[in-house]
Structure formats: C-alpha cells, structure tokens
Amino acid sequence: MSVGTTTREAVRPRSAVSVIDRFGAGLQRLPLHIVIIIFCAIWVVPTVGMIINSFRSVSDMGVAGWWTTLFPPHGFTFASYQQVLAIEGVAPSIVSSVLITIPATVIQLTIATMGAYAFAWMKFPGKNLFFIVIVGLMVVPIQMTLIPVLQFFKLVHLNATIIAVWLAHSGYGLPFEVFLLRNYLGGLPREVFESAEVDGAGHSVRFLRIAVPMTLPAIASLTIFVFLGIWNDLLVALTFLGTSQYRPFTVVITGLVTSFGGGWQFLTAAAVLQMALPLAVFIALQRYFVRGVTAGSVKG
C-alpha cells in the first residue's frame, strides 16, 4: 500500500525482442511517458514555484514570475521569512500549533484505543448499536455540531481556550479512530488473549501488555494521520479560538491572507513554514504516512 512499491512483474517478455523492435516499442510508448510527465508537472510545479518565490524579495515577485529566478541573477533572499516572523503573533502561533496538536493527538488516541478494545474483545448489550452509531458519525460534517459545542464551551467557561480545541478535536476524531483500531484489534489472534486470561491476567494487563503493543503499527500510522490533520486544521481552530491569542498558525496565516489584499506575496514564506512539517513527515515516513491516510477507506 506504499506509494513506492510495485508488486507485479513487467508483463511483456523481453528476451526475444530485437533491439530495433524494442526501440519501436519504446517510441510507441512515448505518448504514455509524455502524459505522465505532464501530470507530474501539474502536481509538483505549483508547490516548487511557491517555494522558490518564498526566497525572493517582494519587489522581484511583483515584476517577474518565479521561473525567471531559475536563471542568474537569482536574487535569493530570506527577507520574506524575516518579514513574516516579525509580524506580531506569527511566531507565537507556531508554538500554539504545537501546543494544540500534540495534546489533542495524545488525548484522542488514548481514549480511542481503550474504546476500541472494549468494542473488539468484550460482549455487552447495545454494542452493535453503539458501533453502528460510531460508523455513522464518521461521515457527519463537523459543521453540524459547531453551534451546540460552542454553546457548551461557553457554559463551562472553556470558550477560546486551548483546552476547548483539544476536546473538540478529540471528539471529532474519535469515531474514525475507534472504528479503525477496533478492526485492527479485532483481527488479533484470539488465542493470545485467551491464554493470558487462563494465566490469570486481568483486562488491564491484557490491554496494556498485549493489545497495545500488538496494535502499535496501526497506532503509529494513525498518530501521523491525526497529528497532521490537526496541524493542518483551519475550521475547528477558527470556530473555537476565533481571535484569541492562542490561534494556531493556519488561522493566523489565513487572517493575514484575507486582510493583506495587495502585499500578500511574502506570505509564501508563512505557507512554506506551515507545510514544512507535513512534507518532512511525508518524506521521512512515507510508508506509514500513506498507510495512515488510506487505512480508513480500504479494508484489510
């Protein structure tokens, strides 16, 4: 399921083909290569162009496109980065993003793993009904819940606090996580749990010593997925933090984009800083990353 693996062997036999035939076949496949390269260009060039732009001065950006920088004089500069970080609230918002993302991820995955264990290995009345509700909740747009949750936070005096965002993210993420982890936990061999039970291990021991360690690969993929989902989130933070001083990076960037009008070009630097973490995680942990992203849709 990784981006990088090819499992099927090339279909055509190669040995009996002469050099000229092979050249002819290669020429025949030229349109295929061209189409693929055009697709790749459309999907890569915009990002590359913006990264290049982030290292140019705003005045350069105003008079010539990013591609002109590919030829000397390049005129690379860190001015946009300095300018962005100097704006009040930008640097703290990066810290806020970290302070929102890590606890929110930890909280929801801990609760989800516990719940998934109950759904996978315990029998109780209403279990199927509860789980069907959870499956249903996975597709409910969070917009549907914003108003009452906002009212709830006001009632308990948590509105516009970082804790509210942790709780909200946890609530919204749980259905999918419980669903996924329950499928994974339920796939573990029954014998392992039964022999532990015979040995006198209680549920807490079975959970902590068997279920959690054996589920770690799934938890790892899910952690990456959830972490980046919260890091990239705009709507939840915008709704529950609004204009508070703990706004995360995405909210602050969005505020700058919509308020600057003309001189927004130096915000490329902000965008690069914001996407640096997700891209680094994707490149470093490609296999886990793709597994995490796709796990929800494909079973098995």
């Binding site: 981006v3 697709f39 790749c40 999907w43 890569v44 915009p46 990002t47 162009g49 913006m50 980046l228 890091w231 990239n232 705009l234 995405t250 960037i253 969005t254 984009v257 915000l267 490329t268 902000a270 965008a271 690069v272 914001q274 996407m275 997700p278 891209l279 995680v281 994707f282 990353f289 793709v290 992203v293």
Partner: peptide, 16 residues
C-alpha cells in the same frame, strides 16, 4: 509527485 499535495494543508495549497 502526484501524492505530494495530500500532506499539504488547504491553507498552504490555497496560497500556492
């Protein structure tokens, strides 16, 4: 190459 935009936030993609 095709997967590259997936980890990028909609905010960054919008600026791109």
């Amino acid at each position: 190459a095709i997967f590259l935009p997936v980890p990028i936030s909609a905010v960054a993609a919008s600026i791109i």
